[in-house]
Amino acid sequence: MSKLNFAIRRLFQMVATLWVIATLLFVMFRAMPGDPTTYFLSEGMPPEARERLIAQYGLDEPTHVQYIEFLRSLVTLELGISFHSGRDVIDIIWLYLPNTLVLMFSAIIFAYVIGIPLGVLAAWKRGEGTEKGAVILALVQRSFPEFWVGLVVLGIFGAWLDVIPMSGMTSGDHRPESFLAMITSLDFIWHLLAPAAVFGFYLMGLPLLLMRNNMLEVLAEDFVDVCRAKGLSERKVMFKHAARNALLPIVTAAAIAIGYAVGGAILVETVFSWPGLGREMVRAVLRRDYPVAQGTFMLLATTVVFMNFVADLIYSWLDPRVTYE
């Protein structure tokens, strides 16, 4: 089977997965105990308004009609209107998604740029204290709740030492002209520093451990001995030849990690009052703003599924050993 065929088959699989997730979401919102409409309608709404919304959302239609309408709305991105603010859900997503993406990519870059060399180092110094130290560091990074680390960082560097801002993306008197102007301003980067570092600290454990494990496997292969026999320095063997071969799984892992990190940023966004999509989803869930909750959740799930798909493609394109039967 050709790579193209594989990609097409994977694409269909992705669409099918998304369809199942969407269906689950649809069922979940309607299968909850009690009157399904109570989950869709905001609390304390006067009866007339409630009836109007029921009609607007087609909740008085038969279930299969609602279901088809629901799928149509997802495909056409007409995700409805927030109960809470009256904004289009898609507008809300556009408002908050870029903020999350900036935070997430900064954190991922931070995590991988530091994590990968540490992983190589750990494999190189196998059996020594360095290895143990690196492995323990990685475990520690994933063991402390990231929101707790965030709060401790805020407490020490924000409240006590006063070297980082306490919350938000920009200072009050900064009024950027555009998104691009904002994210390139020093003020923004100053605000980004702590949340990206905390999130990156949490994400770093994965590339570190993965790199170490892959390196150990690669080092057992023959070509490494060939390199050594050629008289190449150990540093060169490690960082140039072994690391290059161990990197592939990291690339795919990074793609998958990106998918999950968009939703995983929730806690960091909450601690640092970062106006991101995850935080918005949580707030929508808490105040039962279901069009927003549904829309943002679907977006987070789509990101995950899509990045898994991308990871598979990268893997199939880059790894000469993968064959398709």
């Binding site: 805020l154 306490m166 919350s167 938000g168 009050g172």
Partner: peptide
């Protein structure tokens, strides 16, 4: 009148302290 949206009350008190 200017309002900033600040969710954490420690931030609010920090900024009050500084007169912002």
């Amino acid at each position: 009148i200017n309002w900033e949206i600040i969710t954490s009350s420690s931030t609010i008190w920090e900024l009050t302290d500084r007169g912002e």
